[in-house]
Design a protein around this nucleic acid. Structure first.
Length: 783
DNA sequence: TGGAATGATGTTTTT
DNA sequence: CATCATTCCA
């Protein structure tokens, strides 16, 4: 097994460990995936049956990659038999085959976050509770938290601590909502994401034969990213491993970033107590990054109190310091990052795929998207509003869902009147009330001939029945047709395709294309299944199971040479040669939600650690002093995390320092840092875009002032992102100007001295506005 | 009943 | 600024 020679001593010790519990503490970039891969290969070469290996990863992508890599070592045909996937997808598969034990159909629906929130909203309304007090999102979070800790609705109501928490928060009825939620999900034969873990636990708890079955089946367990498991996941693992104790967990407490989802670092700390004679291996040598990056990351994480002591080190070269860039606006930040990529690509032939832009929140992607597009740089955004969240896709999938499981109330409500069938709100309200009274699914109320709805009759009832009859026809075809065939049939005969085809606006065409793409996706899925097993008859239900747990990040990376943009969470486990971490501002990163508690702040810091350690060669940080948020310009201060980096690994690119050579340190540098710190910023308070003065803001030196084209047209004159007033010398009363939002207008009055000049402008389209030149992006229009 | 227009409202991170 | 939800009118 010569592949073992590619491993260092610690890695090899981990990869060749066969029986008994093992915990691998793997620092960032220490070759953990390689170890997991080779360990599986090693097991199989030693004669372990691939079918008896269960490897749980955090993302589908990680699972796929690992499978591929194992395939290269031991051959694809063996590799494909390994049980490998995310917790959710593996247990969804098991639940599907054991569904009847818990009185579910094997075609149960998986409710996504939106479905479950809409159901919760519904329940809150039905209980006549105030949705200002019972905010659906927080109720959902509360229920989710309970499920992750294996507390059901009854347990929730009986839990003194939880009850007093809710009472104190003024929301004593969450227990009731939870009870309804539970029964409504069951009524609809639906499980939410948390249920996949919760019900798996139920299976193992209530059916000893099943526990035994899966304990015997999975002789070897491996869990990646163990630090991110929550209690529900932990207990499944623990139970499955209880018999043979052949369990290997891999994790890094420093990279635990899913606390908000119930992940519990304790799981990693307690592993030693749960199993006896645990072999522990620490992987501390980093192969990924330069020394500057490794040390910078180390210096940051050292600020955390809670951690397992370990020292990540590298033999790699020093590399370039972490570059820090200050910007006046978020748009300028976008331009700068894009320009840097442009330059490096053209001057040093760096391929696009070597770049990544990482941010804290999805909303930040916009500025970068725009700038990259302007420079014609190819990019790909991972996550965010994924393909599967688009309205038209959800609509068609809702049809699929309904055909697979007609009791799926959320799907029913979504498409019963789309395309329009004359089934309006009042009809649906009656139906929903009646379903509630009978505790039956909407579908059952409509189709139960023996007990017709009492409040509905005549035309409305007929329309509803026409709809269910149509779905019934699809259902009848489910046995005859393969997934791809049926999908096409549904798309056509539901009227959805023709509805979209009629819409010739650019958006409509895009939607139509998306539907096409989804249908192609079903086809690809079916063909792949047939390829793997010629006798397989992939059903629409199989496809749904797959698609419900897919994320955008899992989409096929066919055309790969693109700049990658994603949240730091999504970047976990990935690496890039050149990384830009953007938006390093207080209240953004760290997030303002995390400012309250030390634990939350430490999680943010670990997130920053994860971000830094994605980089192989260079890492640039940036922040803006003003940023659009909620449609307002707000000012921001640099993130505390920047200062936490040991300064010998940092360079402040646009402070006026000479470019220091790596690690030169020295007085000139200190000075630059000081200078940079003293640079005036707009202060911490929110300043309205067109309102109050932010007198502390200093004008930018004219030489640095960039030009930019106004989006509303008008000939390019000059634009001033910070707007210091003096920048538009030929402004006077009567001048025609153009504003991004308000369109063209005429200056009526100018008052105040620069930089606080205020202009009164009359916009024919928007009325008279008072604008502070400092902030308003005005362009002079030449006659 | 359906659609358009208007107004309130909210943003972490993900399976 | 977006999206959503509610409202209002045909």
């Amino acid at each position: 097994m010569e592949f073992l020679n590619e491993l260092n001593e610690a890695q090899r010790a981990a990869a060749t460990h066969v029986d008994g519990p093992m915990m691998v503490i793997a620092g960032a970039g220490s070759g953990k995936t390689r170890v997991l891969t080779y360990r599986i290969a090693y097991l199989i070469e030693r004669g372990v049956d691939p079918f008896s290996i269960l490897a749980l990863t955090f993302t589908n992508k990680a699972a796929r990659e690992m499978k591929e890599r194992i395939g290269k070592v031991i051959g694809e045909s063996e590799a494909k038999n390994i049980w490998m996937g995310t917790f959710h997808s593996v247990f969804a598969r098991i639940l599907r085959s054991e569904a009847e034990r818990i009185n579910y159909t094997r075609n149960f629906t998986i409710y996504d976050t939106a479905d479950s929130r809409s159901l919760i909203k519904d329940i809150i309304k039905g209980l006549n509770l105030d949705d200002k007090v019972y905010k659906p999102a927080s109720v959902q979070a509360r229920i989710s938290g309970a499920k992750n800790n294996l507390i059901d609705a009854t347990g929730y109501a009986d839990h003194p601590e939880i009850q007093s928490e809710d009472a104190q928060a003024g929301r004593p009825h969450i227990a009731t909502i939870y009870q309804h939620y539970e029964s409504r999900c069951f009524r609809a034969q639906a499980m939410d994401f948390d249920d996949l873990l919760f019900k798996m636990n139920i299976l193992l708890r209530d059916f000893p034969d099943l526990l035994y079955k899966y304990q015997s089946k999975f002789a070897y367990l491996m869990v990646d990213e163990y630090q991110d498991t929550n209690f529900a996941q932990y207990l499944i693992i623990k139970q499955l491993a209880a018999q043979r104790e052949n369990i290997c967990v891999v994790g890094d407490d420093a990279q635990s970033i899913y606390g908000f989802r119930g992940a519990n670092i304790e799981n990693i700390l307690n592993f030693k107590h749960d199993f006896k004679a645990v072999k522990t291996v620490k992987l501390e040598q980093n192969y990924r990054s330069t020394r500057a990056i490794v040390e910078a990351a180390n210096s940051v994480i050292a600020h955390n109190k809670d951690q397992i002591p370990k020292s990540v080190w590298t033999e790699n070269g020093d590399g370039r310091r972490i570059q820090i860039n200050r910007h006046y606006t978020d748009n300028e930040e976008g331009r700068h990052v894009a320009t840097r990529i442009f330059d490096m690509h053209h001057q040093q032939q760096v391929p696009f795929k070597d770049f990544a832009i990482l941010y804290r929140t999805n909303a930040q992607s916009r500025a970068f998207e725009e700038s990259l597009r302007k420079l014609n740089l190819p990019y790909r955004i991972y996550g965010g509003t994924s393909f599967y969240q688009r309205k038209e896709i959800k609509d068609l999938i809702a049809y699929f869902r309904l055909v697979a499981n007609p009791r799926d109330d959320e799907a029913f409500k979504r498409v019963v009147n789309y395309p329009a069938r004359g089934i309006g709100k009042s009809t649906m309200d009656k139906l929903i009330i009646e379903a509630g009274e009978r505790n039956a699914a909407l579908w059952d109320v409509v189709t139960d001939e023996s007990m017709p709805p009492t409040t509905l009759s005549g035309a409305p009832l007929k329309k509803l029945r026409d709809f269910t009859n149509m779905i019934r026809r699809f259902m009848a075809d489910m046995d005859r047709m393969a997934a791809d065939e049926l999908a096409l049939e549904i798309a056509k005969h539901s009227g959805l395709v023709s509805e979209l085809y009629r819409d010739k606006t650019p958006e409509g065409v895009a939607r139509y294309d998306n539907i096409q793409e989804l249908l192609n996706g079903v086809q690809a899925f079916a063909e792949q299944a047939r390829e793997a097993d010629p006798d397989a008859r992939p059903t629409l239900g199989d496809f749904l199971l797959d698609v419900a747990l897919l994320t955008d990040a899992d989409q096929d990376d066919d055309d790969l040479n693109k700049v990658a943009m994603m949240t730091i969470h999504a970047a976990k486990g990935l690496e890039f040669k050149h990384v830009s971490i953007v938006g390093l501002e207080e209240n953004l990163f760290p997030s303002q939600m995390a400012m309250q508690s030390r634990a939350d702040l430490e999680e943010e810091r670990r997130l920053f650690y994860v971000a830094l350690t994605r980089a192989e060669e260079t890492c640039a940080l940036s922040f803006a002093q003003t940023r659009y948020r909620f449609g307002q310009v707000i000012s921001a201060e640099p993130s505390r995390f920047i200062e936490e980096i040991d300064e010998q690994y940092v360079e402040y690119s646009n402070a006026k320092a000479a470019k220091p050579t790596p690690f030169a340190g020295g007085a000139s540098f200190e000075q630059a840092r000081k200078q940079w710190k003293q640079m005036p910023s707009a202060g911490g308070d929110t300043a309205k875009a067109f309102g109050r003065l932010a007198d502390k803001a200093a004008p930018k030196p004219a030489a640095e002032r960039p030009f930019q084209r106004s989006s509303t047209g008008g000939k390019l004159k000059r634009v001033d992102p910070i707007g210091d007033g003096g920048a538009l010398p030929d402004l006077q009363e009567g001048t025609l100007v153009s504003h991004e939002r308000f369109g063209k207008g005429k200056i009526v009055k100018l008052e105040g001295a620069a930089p606080n000049t205020k202009a009164t402008v009359f916009f024919p389209e928007a009325g008279t506005k008072q604008l502070l030149l400092k902030f308003a992006k005005l362009t002079v229009i030449e006659e």
